[in-house]
């Protein structure tokens, strides 16, 4: 039935995929910002993938063929971004850090996506006491300082996690706790709207099972704003991971290279004028968050008809 109605519409191809659609429907500065963001993000993904080939040393390596690395050595041919107080190579740790950051973000965002969207759909569609309880929980969590929550959660789960995967996983769980309510709120609100649409009513009249209505009709129509939340949350989770690391609740430094931890060590270095231990990992965080946020902001603008339409109107006048 539904296919008959949809037939006259253009076939869905790869150009209808969220980000691709946005690039095609953008222009001028908006397009510039979107593409700049995409280039930054893809560049960093490339660095993460190629880290084994690009990084001269491993993330926890403190000595080379010529003996132990010097401590606090300024940038040189041997260590192009210098070494830290512990004798780590800053360049290698910054490169390896991209992997930790991207992996954590990927896991945190997908976990909160699945849980948040699922709960939001069920809560909005079925309503009732479960809905009320979930809304109240989500509101309470949403109002609370996110970083504190992540710290509290990570205290619990990270106890004794020193492996790479365990560390990344516990950081990801701590971060996803913050984001579940955000997905939940948005999807629930959209579900409430879609639920009242005539086509849902029609499906119900035809006797379609409720779970099928939920999957086919409601879920597909509530996914509109999800790419935007994903990008915004991705940016936020990079910052949260760094903050956790900075406060000493992140991943063990011998298990993985993590920028926040490196910055924590670097704060003490600044007073003696040592800049290279902080500036490089810090800039890496800024670049990654900048890229992701540029993508997210542009997607928001291009998706919002009010923001998009106004641009064309303004241009005619000019």
């Amino acid at each position: 039935m539904a296919t008959v109605v949809q037939e006259p519409r253009q076939r869905r191809g790869w150009t209808d995929l969220p980000v691709v659609w946005h690039v095609r429907h953008s222009a001028g500065l908006q397009r510039g910002m979107l593409i700049a963001g995409l280039v930054l993000v893809l560049g960093i993904v490339l660095v993460a993938v190629l880290a084994p080939f690009l990084a001269p040393y491993s993330h926890a390596q403190m000595s080379g063929a010529a003996g132990p690395f010097p401590r606090h050595a300024p940038p040189s041919g041997e260590h192009i971004w210098g070494t830290t107080v512990g004798g780590y190579d800053v360049f290698s740790r910054t490169l390896w850090g991209t992997r930790t950051a991207l992996l954590t973000v990927l896991m945190a965002v997908s976990a909160s996506l699945v849980l948040g969207v699922g709960l939001g759909l069920v809560s909005g569609f079925f309503g009732g006491p479960l809905d009320r309880v979930l809304v109240m929980l989500a509101d309470a969590v949403y109002a609370f300082p996110a970083l504190l929550l992540a710290i509290v959660v990570s205290i619990v789960i990270s106890g004794g996690q020193s492996s790479y995967f365990g560390g990344v996983l516990s950081a990801a769980i701590a971060i996803s706790v913050i984001f579940i309510p955000q997905f939940f709120r948005v999807v629930r609100a959209e579900t409430l709207q879609v639920k009242a649409e005539p086509f849902v009513e029609a499906a119900r009249v035809f006797g379609m099972p409720r779970t099928r209505i939920l999957r086919r009709h409601v879920l597909r129509n509530t996914t509109r704003s999800i790419p935007l939340i994903i990008t915004l949350n991705a940016a936020e989770s990079i910052l949260t991971l760094a903050a956790l690391g900075f406060l000493g609740f992140g991943i063990d430094p011998t298990a993985a290279a993590e920028w926040g931890y490196d910055l924590n060590r670097a704060v003490a270095d600044t007073s003696s004028g040592i800049w290279w231990t902080g500036v490089f990992p810090g800039s890496a965080i800024v670049l990654l968050v900048l890229g992701v946020t540029l993508v997210g902001e542009s997607l928001t603008d291009i998706s919002d008809p009010r923001l998009r339409r106004r641009r064309h109107r303004g241009r005619k006048k000019a």
Binding site: G28, L29, M33, A235, V267, G278, I285, V286, L290, T293
Partner: peptide, 27 residues
């Protein structure tokens, strides 16, 4: 909006957001 000066301020605003406060403090 959507002129060069807007773009500059927006990128600056995003930069302010993208910089962790402890890194800004360090710099």
């Amino acid at each position: 909006r959507d002129r060069a000066s807007d773009a500059v301020f927006r990128v600056l605003a995003i930069l302010a957001y993208a910089t962790p406060v402890f890194f800004a403090g360090l710099l």
